[in-house]
Design a protein around this nucleic acid. Sequence first.
DNA 1: CTAGCTGCAAAACATTTGCATTTCG
DNA 2: CGAAATGCAAATGTTTTGCAGCTAG
Lengths: 138, 138
Amino acid sequence: MGRIMDNLESRCIRSGLKMTDQRRTILKVLEGAEDHPSVEMVYERARSQNPSISMATVYRTLNLLDELGVVIRHDFKENFSRYELNAEHHDHLIDLETGDVIEFQDGELEAIKERIAREMGYDLVDHRLELYGKRKRS
Amino acid sequence: MGRIMDNLESRCIRSGLKMTDQRRTILKVLEGAEDHPSVEMVYERARSQNPSISMATVYRTLNLLDELGVVIRHDFKENFSRYELNAEHHDHLIDLETGDVIEFQDGELEAIKERIAREMGYDLVDHRLELYGKRKRS
DNA sequence: CTAGCTGCAAAACATTTGCATTTCG
DNA sequence: CGAAATGCAAATGTTTTGCAGCTAG
């Protein structure tokens, strides 16, 4: 540990955030997450490490981190949001049967997105691509 | 008119839906929409043609139409849903400055989406691609 | 010390639902 | 007539916020 967390922490501090226990805990939860946790999940995991943390703080913190670009907020076809640390760009494939979220990256795809935006007279600021599928039988 | 609406209506009837004034009005609103209206907007437009229509009915109807595949529900990066008639497939570019939603279609892109899902061992059931951009200057 | 955080509970929003009544077929 | 649809108001689930007290820097 240490390396990544320090980077995260210092990035937050450089952005003018105060480092409280709650925030440190939330960052640690995000760091350790191998999935794309919902706010509820971040809350529960944080709470198990540090019971004195409230839902409101989790929401406020995730919103801040999102604005700073430290995390990415996802709104898949569900009625709640999920978050993940903002690492290298990738897209998502959602398994419709299990709800699993699988990451993937495809250079050709990235190039095409850029091209399309450009052709339409736009600078691409952000984008999202989600594939929803069922595991192939046989 | 007539042609499209009859198709819509008969499609609904064939699916076992009763054709009420409210539903006819909502279908007409969707037919006339050149944008991607929110539920609130569908409600207001429907209401101006037929004041005896309630929000609950708009929600219930749009959900039904979505299940039947008559409309497509979009959840862009906003905190509400938008709907449009289910015509030929296309993706969306959202203008971050004006909020305008622009449709586009790109065959190469479609092929790549299929390929990626296949390579990962999935059958593509649904997908969404949204580009968020700012109009190029100069 | 004090701007910024926090917890709590209440509010805000979009959306759904229970129920009594009306309507389509 | 009977199943399905409607309006209304209340309930829901997620996310936000006002406020008084706490804490990092």
